[in-house]
Amino acid sequence: MTTLQSAPATAALSPAPPARRSPGLLKRLAGRSTGGLVRLGLLIIALFWMVPTLGLLVSSLRKPLDIQASGWWSIFTAPASLTLHNYTSLLANPAISRSVANSIMITVPATLLVVIIGALAAYIFAWVEFPGRDVVFLIVVGLLVVPIQVALIPVTDLFAKVGIFGSIASVVLFHVAFGLPFAIFLLRNFFAQIPQELLEAARLDGAGELRLFTRVVLPLGGPAIASLAIFQFLWVWNDMLVALIFANSSAAPLTVALTEQTRQFGTNIDVLSSGAFLSMIIPLVVFFAFQRQFVSGLTAGALK
């Protein structure tokens, strides 16, 4: 594990222990009033931070005519009828519903494959010695920061030669490859912390590598695997560039379908706002359900 990934990181979103009481009454009162000011400041900042998202959410619930007629904030002074109309018409659009399905068909395999392939390799890097292991692992660490842009052109060429350019598989493969350095890095560091005695005891019992991997390492690596899976899931689900390059129109995920809509921005805010919010629902659910794993994955991958 890296230093940043230790216990405090996972608790980063939970409150810090309250300050010890300062001695003097005056000092305490002063502290209380600055505390109040800080609290007020935090409230204002939080509201400020929420306004953009709120604007999108409210817009997505307004009728197209209302959107063109007045700002979304006018619902606070003159509560208009909000409606799910934009969402129902969005999902009735075959291109959009197809793209939602594509998003799932890209994201799920890309996440599973990264976890499986990454865990296999990480186990070897952590616990099996072979010539050149350290060099290979340092190369993997080096690959953490390689910008995907470097590979877009050559991989386009490669996929075209192999004949998978434009398919869902091409998008998945690219995501898996660029997810692997982080996956191996994260899991190897976590696996290396498993007590050696545990592995040796299992070996003495006659367990082979495959058995060790599935029965000892994988269960113990649960937390790190969860972090990785959430991180990779969000990364792939939120990706636009990779799919924009590799996916043809029948393989395009939601992000790419929406990107095409942004060209006529202004006349189609109803489609864009509901579409964007639709694309945010899954990440937000994942985020709120698994904050802890998300944060620890993020801090571990700090230099990605």
């Binding site: 939080a46 931070w49 306004v51 998202t53 999108l56 636009m240 864009l272 694309s279 985020f287 998300f294």
Partner: peptide, 26 residues
Amino acid sequence: ATAFKLVIFMPMAISMLAAGIIFRLV
């Protein structure tokens, strides 16, 4: 302060595309 942190941190979970549309509107 957890609620505050969640609010500030939330945009990390969404795509740059969604954030782009949000700010195009802003």
